[in-house]
């Protein structure tokens, strides 16, 4: 199989997952100017949720739905308990609080499930390979196809919601000027809750896809992935839906290509590389690749 094509597919896979998470970050940041570090940990919550439900005998689709519900529940509790009281506090307060929530979640699951690495075993169907193309053919697993289809569908769906529905317009209005939005009769708390529901659901799906693809999971997995996805959102331009999606995909591709193509030993710099990209992009485009200049009244 063509090495480049294979790497590209791997990159797109990872990137799609990053995109889902990055969109969640973006939606919440757009409205609240809040960087939810705990967002990445919701991935982890979803994975454990799905794993437990499958162990209890639920079939895969129900387990996934169940884990999405569990994750959304966590997300809503966090919003209500930790972020809503800080609604009018400065950037710093919300930043450190979300870090604290992240640590809380990680340690909670550490306590209950121990740090042990576990395996998320999906039915064999997902590892079956499909061969595309003739000579110089590309092999792709069903899992990859599932990832592309699911993320593509979700991104399209969320995009539609944001552009066309009443609630979506309300969300964009709140992101631009929450005071004026309130005067239009928009219930800011309801919009925030909706944003968290969407974001948490996306993170949950991302979590299940990620663990399905990369198999191994533990309580600390979410934070790092979340940070990278956040970097992706920032690179694309945080607050911008398209930017987040694009940033996610771009970062995934770059990260995998970097790992595959650069000389031996440099591969371990993978994560550091992500941040180097971030720093470089922000140097030239301080608002991200697609970001609009920040000018917000509230």
């Amino acid at each position: 199989m063509d090495f480049f094509a294979g790497s590209l597919i791997s990159g797109l896979q990872l990137g799609s997952i990053y995109a889902l998470i990055a969109i969640g970050y973006s939606i919440v940041y757009g409205i609240l100017r809040l960087i939810n570090f705990a967002h990445g940990d919701l991935l982890m919550v979803a994975t454990y949720g799905a794993w437990i439900l499958i162990a209890r005998g639920l079939s895969l689709p129900f387990a996934v739905i169940g884990s999405v519900l569990i994750t959304v529940a966590f997300g809503l509790v966090i919003e209500r308990a930790a972020y809503r009281p800080l609604r009018d506090a400065g950037e710093e307060a919300t930043l450190i609080t979300s870090l604290a929530v992240s640590i809380f979640l990680q340690n909670l699951f550490l306590m209950v499930f121990t740090p042990k690495n576990r395996a998320f075993a999906l039915p064999g169907f997902f590892s079956e390979k499909l061969v595309l193309g003739g000579a110089g053919s590309i092999t792709i697993t069903n899992m990859s196809i599932v990832i592309f289809v699911v993320t593509g569908g979700l991104i399209a769906a969320v995009s539609l919601i944001i552009k066309k529905t009443r609630l979506g317009i309300a969300m964009r209005a709140c992101a631009e000027n929450s005071t004026a939005a309130k005067l239009m009769g928009v219930n800011l708390n309801a919009v925030v809750v909706f944003a968290f529901v969407v974001g948490s659901a996306l993170a949950a799906v991302a979590g299940v896809l990620y663990s399905g693809q990369y198999v191994s999971f533990n309580p600390s997995m979410g934070f790092m992935i979340g940070i990278k996805a956040f970097a992706a959102a920032v690179i694309g331009g945080i607050g911008s839906f398209a930017g987040a999606a694009a940033g996610g995909v771009l970062l995934g591709v770059l990260e995998i290509l970097f790992a595959c193509y650069l000389p031996e030993g440099a591969g371990v710099y993978q994560t550091a590389f992500v941040f180097l990209v971030l720093i470089v992009v922000l140097l030239f485009k301080p608002n991200g690749l697609f970001g609009a200049a920040e000018g917000r009244r509230s």
Partner: peptide, 20 residues
């Protein structure tokens, strides 16, 4: 590079700093 940013962005760049 880091100090050119402000607020949130700066904070995340410092995280990147630890990673690097």
């Amino acid at each position: 590079p880091v100090l050119r940013a402000k607020g949130h962005y700066l904070a995340v760049m410092t995280l990147g700093m630890i990673i690097i």
